[in-house]
Computed example of a mutant assay.
Amino acid sequence: MLITAQDTAVVILSYNGKKWHELFLPLIVAEAPSGYSVVVVDNASTDDTADYIRTHFPGVSLLQIAVNKGFAHGYAEALKQISSKYYVLLSADFEVTPGWFPPLHQAMEQHPQMAACQPKIRYYREREKFEYAGAAGGFKDTFGYMFCRGRVLDEIESDQGQYDDNVEIFWASGGCLFVRAELYHKVGGLDDEFYAHQEEIDLCWRLQNAGYTVGYIGSSTVYHVGGSVISYGSPQKLFYNFRNSLIILLKNEPLRRLVWLFPVRLVLDGVAGLHFMMQGKFRECFTVIKAHFNFYGSLGKWMKHRRQARRLVSAQPVKRSVYKGSIVWQYFIKKTRRFSELNWKPQPLKP
């Protein structure tokens, strides 16, 4: 079944998400006249999500996936069946706010080289705080570690208007990701082999390697519950974070950087495992080791993914949103806790 949306399709991936739809879908639907169609993708739920959507939201398009193979696979399957100019990948546990959509759409229209963007993301349960997974836009340091404005490693800031601007970022949160449909498919979309976590970083990196930018729009705000499928701090989340971070480096870094960066990352990940062990967190230490061995065991597959990704690299990939220092050094040695303390600013969006 092919769904032809308006200019924009807001695509909500849902797994046993009825409780979130009861809370959040009414406002999403109410805001739809501002320029988008709503599609709910039921990712093999075991609750009555599909029946609930059909009964209470007959104007919402419903796609059903027979087997749940993770977040990335769910979107990969769904977006093959949706035709529109833009996609907004919106997780079921997000609350939008009145007027959330127009600033994002306007920014995409005004900046044709911007392939994707995200709004400001605040935490649903502590509403004055930024949310861990995206906050005020994601960045990468020189060693490939990811962090956000508003969230440096585990330190989360309160929103006091300090990030109300529109700037270039390195990665946009997959929880509320506005992306050009044509470019999404051109670079291969979300890699469904990731299962979950960091697949949006991989996508944004490939878009930048293809010569496009990624943006943050501070005049749009949404709220995220977080951890509703894979809880924060769980061994499963830790496994995917460590394994997938190695995959995105292998896929997207040029060879001249990989030859020195990979050995450094192996040492740093080893230090992280040792740190867990010294804290008595033996399960977490084992999870780091497990993630590495899983990565090595599938190295042939990931090399194939690298070859596919490198074919898309343009003559001038975008590199403006990379912090040249080490966020790990800043956090643990220099005790940096806020983005503003880095003395480094992202560039404003350019037409």
Rank of each mutant, 00 (worst) to 15 (best):
G134W: 05
A72K: 02
Q236W: 04
L63T: 04
R127V: 13
R311F: 01
W260K: 12
G174S: 06
V29H: 12
T46P: 06
P351M: 11
K186F: 11
D51W: 05
A135I: 10
S91L: 13
F94C: 13
S61N: 14
D269R: 10
I169V: 15
I201D: 08
H185G: 06
E182V: 08
V229Y: 13
Q208P: 03
L268P: 00
P317L: 00
N68Q: 06
V10H: 01
L255I: 12
F143I: 00
E168C: 11
V288K: 02
Y52A: 03
K345F: 09
K140H: 02
Y87P: 07
R310M: 13
I248C: 10
E77L: 14
P103N: 00
S37Y: 02
G233P: 08
R180M: 07
K319C: 08
K251W: 08
L203G: 00
L268V: 05
G215A: 02
I169G: 07
S158P: 10
F194D: 00
E131Q: 14
N166I: 04
C285R: 13
I201A: 15
F286Q: 13
V179A: 05
Q64M: 11
G175A: 04
F71W: 14
I333H: 08
R311Y: 01
P254D: 00
I217P: 09
M146P: 00
F101G: 05
D47C: 01
V271C: 05
M278F: 10
E128C: 11
E284W: 02
F71D: 10
A66E: 15
R54I: 08
K80C: 10
F57M: 10
V313Y: 07
K120L: 14
K290D: 12
L238H: 10
K324Y: 04
V38F: 03
R306Y: 01
D164I: 05
W171E: 11
E284L: 03
L63D: 04
L25Y: 09
Y216I: 02
F339M: 08
K334L: 12
V167C: 10
F242N: 11
I82H: 05
I65D: 01
S228V: 13
I28N: 03
A107H: 11
P263L: 04
Q279E: 13
F194T: 00
G189A: 05
I201V: 15
I169N: 04
S326G: 02
V10R: 01
R149C: 04
E131C: 12
P348K: 00
E77F: 03
D42W: 10
N244T: 03
I3F: 15
A30F: 01
R311N: 09
G70P: 11
N241R: 11
V267C: 12
H292T: 09
H197F: 15
R151M: 15
H185I: 07
A76E: 09
F57A: 09
S84M: 03
Y212E: 06
A9S: 02
K85I: 06
Q308A: 11
Y36Q: 06
S34L: 13
P235K: 03
F276Y: 15
L89I: 13
G189L: 11
W171K: 03
T142Q: 14
S173W: 00
A92H: 14
Q316I: 03
F57S: 10
E77A: 12
C285M: 14
L177W: 09
Y145K: 10
L349Y: 07
Y163W: 14
M278Y: 07
C148Y: 15
F276T: 04
A107K: 10
S45K: 02
V96G: 06
G280I: 02
F282M: 12
E168Q: 15
K345V: 12
A92W: 07
